[in-house]
Amino acid sequence: MKESLMDVLCCPMDKSELELEVDERADDEEVLAGTLVCSECGERYPIEDGIPNLLPPDMRDDVPA
């Protein structure tokens, strides 16, 4: 995920700003792993392999195939 994306992403639930916690970077701009945290409700959205998962919590829980 490009860090510059932060200004257009928001929490899908309450549309508040997100804060970025970085676990792993590819370079200055690209975040490979981390978490987006809603500044209002505190919901945590994972970034895995560079793709942020901003599905609402009720769709994000992994359902066995």
Binding site: V8, L54, P56
Partner: peptide, 15 residues
């Protein structure tokens, strides 16, 4: 381009 996983009825995109 950037790709984001999300739900069309609850978009994670700024107003």
């Amino acid at each position: 381009v950037a790709f984001v996983q999300g739900d069309a009825s609850r978009l994670p995109v700024s107003t």
